[in-house]
Design a protein around this nucleic acid. Structure first.
Lengths: 346, 346
DNA sequence: CTGTTAGCGCCTTCAA
DNA sequence: TTGAAGGCGCTAACAG
């Protein structure tokens, strides 16, 4: 006992099974069995082990266990950013499902940078995660770093920002449909010249929202004017330039459909700063129903996504995949529904 | 080669040093040295090893390494929630510093629940993090689960929501001063009956902001009216009840100082819904300068905190602590400055 | 410069 | 019901 309490106060000494075995005069294996709830162990022995372990704040070293079992019960999540409320919310959903299934979560944010994303995948690999949930950066065009997971037999599930060239499960919303309905709504409200502040073409979601936009115009016999479509890198600081450019046109738009809410919100600020009225002079519609969009003046009309559900679904698909044999991997694509929330900005 | 490529395509086979050694006819240790950049290795040998490793997507197994070195190069972060922009921002700051210092980050959110927080600490312990950054839940009154870290020699640093009974580094802002200035500002603007929607008394920050509030009243010879102070559990849904209660008083307040921005924002919504004008009928001031506070109508006057810097400072203190001997642990308390941002709500 | 040996903390046969 | 032995993937002495 003296030895143990001594060690116990040394720098970072871990109480190990050996310590307990020594103290209780048992073999390591017996202690291990008692600790893991193995049935074939004497009740009194188990009791003693458990009590002493508790008293010593013994914690099983998952590193050692994982080394043996080749399972860490950890899933990795890689997201591009934390600025909007989207990814935090999705993560909450994913964590909920994961933790219920006994999985821990390691979160990395790639800061919208390809290099960081690659580094993040290395971290995940080195830490032997059992699977990863990924939403790619706007820069990511090469997917080798993600394909490694497939080759190694580590399941991967995409959500929101997905990769088209990989045959793995994906969770998305119907971006095309959401955009289509948002733009149709503007047209119903009598808008004729609808601009679109689009996302970078590297992202599938930008492309789909753009397609929804053009489809809605076409269906309503409104001519597509490429001058009204500005695709940008989602760096919100630049919105000011684009909006001013649009407003300075000879024939300025009477509505803006923005690829996401931060863009729309920033657009509204710029428009109002010029003394124009939203929605009278120019209507604005966003995408995602961020927390702030209901609070700004005027409240933003937007396409809402079931963000938390996206996270939950993605985590569930991932865990299903983990519990399946590689040969049985499914490549389900789950498309969730969006909802148009009409507020005062349109 | 045949064997390896065979294994390589099996379910979850890890390419190991042994595989490389076998293939290249070298000893494990030589391969290991080449991989870790040890100088005493023949250039050609190293080259061959590195190339083959690359080709095989070899990733060092950090579990095994950590098991030996007793260092995971991972820090844990436990935060109570992800709803406001506060913690995501703080995490970004912390990750920045951590990753520059070569540390990975494991994030857990306790969902403002004591039990979850305890569970989170177990996870951190089991995964052998080198240190943790903690902001406690509003429920946490017992700190045994955190004291375990101290006893085990694992550094711990608190930020924002700190624990008073533990002698460890803490990063906070001057809540007292921030509140004092916010309330003084309201008084300067001619407000006489200033209500305070306070946080739960279990949190130090609530207490300090309350103290700042009373001090400002006292200094300006305004009598403290306990009816005007409502302390609540930060569940924003309840703000409506409290604000309505205040407004229904015989002698209603002419200003509200809210413990944080979500509370203030919700208060403004409630006030306006009753047809009252902010700030004419009643002024509102918040705390934290959340993203949304600049966007709402009217824009919220608030006390801004250097959130990202808080995260950075906390991570830096933690890493310093990790690199120090237990005997040398410092218990620095870093108090960062706040800034009053006057906008239209006051 | 390279190989050998002995573990890290734990689980899992196999034997008793 | 318990113990002994072997090994997960890797590093760290200690020898050549």
């Amino acid at each position: 006992m003296k030895i143990i309490s001594f060690l116990y106060h040394m720098k970072r000494h871990q109480v190990t099974i050996i310590d307990i075995a020594r103290e209780l005069n048992l073999s390591k294996s017996t202690v291990s069995r008692a600790l893991t709830g193995h049935p074939s162990v004497n009740a009194a022995t188990r009791q003693a082990v458990l009590e002493f372990a508790e008293k010593m704040d013994y914690q099983r070293n998952m590193l050692a266990i994982s080394l043996i079992t080749k399972k860490t019960n950890t899933i990795g999540i890689i997201v591009p950013e934390f600025h909007s409320s989207y990814f935090p919310k999705a993560i909450i959903g994913a964590q909920e499902v994961a933790s219920k299934a006994g999985y821990n979560t390691v979160i990395c944010q790639s800061n919208e940078t390809y290099e960081t994303e690659v580094a993040n995948t290395k971290v995940m690999l080195a830490n032997q995660v059992d699977g990863i949930l990924v939403s790619i950066t706007k820069e990511t065009r090469n997917f080798d770093h993600l394909k490694i997971f497939q080759r190694k037999g580590i399941p991967i599930v995409f959500f929101n920002r997905v990769c088209d060239e990989m045959d793995v499960p994906k969770v998305i919303v119907d971006d095309y449909d959401g955009a289509f309905r948002a733009v149709s709504h503007l047209i119903e409200r009598g808008r004729k010249r609808i601009a679109h502040l689009a996302g970078p073409s590297s992202l599938k979601i930008s492309e789909k929202r753009l397609n929804g936009y053009t489809a809605a115009l076409r269906k309503n016999n409104i001519e597509f004017d490429e001058e009204l479509v500005i695709s940008y890198d989602l760096n919100v600081d630049k919105v000011k330039i684009y909006v001013n450019h649009l407003l300075n046109m000879d024939n300025p738009p009477d509505a803006i459909f923005a690829v996401n809410d931060p863009t729309a919100i920033e657009a509204i600020q710029v428009i109002r700063k010029r003394g124009l009225n939203v929605p009278k002079d120019i209507a604005v519609v966003g995408f995602s129903n961020d927390f702030a969009s209901g609070l700004i003046e005027p409240a933003l009309t937007t396409v809402s996504q079931p963000v938390k559900e996206i996270g939950q679904t993605a985590a569930q698909l991932l865990i299903d995949q983990i519990n399946r044999d590689v040969a049985d991997w499914k490549t389900i694509i789950r498309v969730l529904k969006t909802e148009l929330i009409v507020r005062r900005s349109s």
